[in-house]
Nucleic acid binder design. Structure first.
Lengths: 210, 210
DNA sequence: GCGAATTCTTATCCTTTGTTAACGATTTGT
DNA sequence: ACAAATCGTTAACAAAGGATAAGAATTCGC
């Protein structure tokens, strides 16, 4: 929990320009509410049962969201550099989170807190800009959720795996396969079968025809 | 596509108070951008392939969201009275929707358009309030999506059915079962089996032991 | 670099679900 | 009220996925 460096602030400010452009004065105020968290692999950004008080933006590293059901971890999502991180419902409603958020690699996260945000909403020098910022980030999140839900509803796990294969994100190259299996809603064994089907589809046919 | 009645406006205004409270002056401006759509059963609020230009609020009736895959309809969600309705990603990004939104019953929907909203964001008399309104509605939607995704990730279709059974919403009483099966991610046949298991769990055992 | 832990694959067996079709009940339109 | 369409259940069979275990490959910690 440290103050951000100038470089980190610059980088974050640049990244936020897809949502809003802050004036110097606005940015100085906003920046006063930012802090940086350093997470070692397997450390937690948020924990199930506790209220998530922060929204973070991943400067470095990657994290996973998971639920625990019957003592088993179920990974629901991943985030990488330049993406926001939070247990959003917990943050927004200030109720205990049902999921945990854990670093998969060592991470640097630039964060603001719920109470900080509340101050900003009350500060007439920035509140209009912050409202807009909040709205646009929330809208972007809705688009992400919309895609996720559509994917769950309309696609089989195998199709969703193919989607990952052909996408530009780095889920498949940076993440242990059993987490990906969870994410797809299947067991690691089943994912392994899917991979074999895709990589060597001729084997099954040969046995039948030859 | 008609102007709302005074009663409809009053009702809608009251419903929005969970998000923001409008002054008379603000409300008069906002209300000028509202219109009412009447949908007969099976008519469309939004269609796949077209940009969804509106956000609606269901005054009466119920609707379903569905995707078409390989010529087959897959129902992903339902909405009832006093809930917002839109193909949100399509609306927010003004890109063609991947889903259709169809009335399951005759519906009355009070709506505002994307261009109307843009005007409101540009009107200094209301823009601050509308930004806030937009943010809070978006945040509420995020919470809904968060629950839906968590449900998909952590629960089996049978558990999700039980959830519907014990919830206070009226999905199970007002919706054809094959839509519910879709919604749960299973076939109507499979849902029928789940229902039998729940209603008459002793039958299977009797056959084995008796 | 070496032992331990983790990760991935493969095989076998078994449960669950999908597919298809038939039938009865209910609903709908006229 | 009656014919047609829709809807829910059940059965039989096929296909797919989960559970478990064993072994190979890779990674990690010291």
């Amino acid at each position: 929990m440290k103050y951000p460096t100038e470089l980190q602030l610059l980088f974050f400010r640049k990244a936020l320009e897809q949502f809003v452009v802050f004036t110097e004065r606005e940015w100085d105020i906003f920046a006063g509410y930012l802090h940086v968290k350093t997470l070692k692999k397997k450390e937690y950004f948020a924990e199930a049962g506790k209220v998530c008080n922060e929204v973070g933006f991943l400067l470095r590293g990657s994290i996973r969201y998971y639920h625990v059901k019957d003592g088993v971890e179920i990974t629901g999502y991943f985030s990488f550099e330049n993406e926001f991180v939070s247990a959003y419902k917990s943050f927004l409603t200030q109720t205990p989170s049902t999921a945990s958020i854990q670093a998969m690699e060592n991470c640097q996260v630039i964060c603001f807190t719920h109470s900080g945000l509340r101050d900003l909403f009350d500060n007439p020098l920035v509140n209009y800009k912050i409202e807009r910022f909040g709205r646009l980030v929330a809208e972007a999140l809705i688009c992400c959720y919309d895609d996720r839900v559509a994917s769950f509803v309309t696609k089989t796990p195998e199709e969703r795996y193919m989607e990952l294969l052909h996408s530009n994100n780095n889920i498949l190259t940076r993440i242990p396969q059993h987490y990906v299996a969870n994410y797809l809603g299947i067991t690691p064994v089943s994912l392994s079968r899917i991979r074999r089907r895709i990589l060597k589809p001729q084997h099954g046919l040969r046995q039948v025809t030859g």
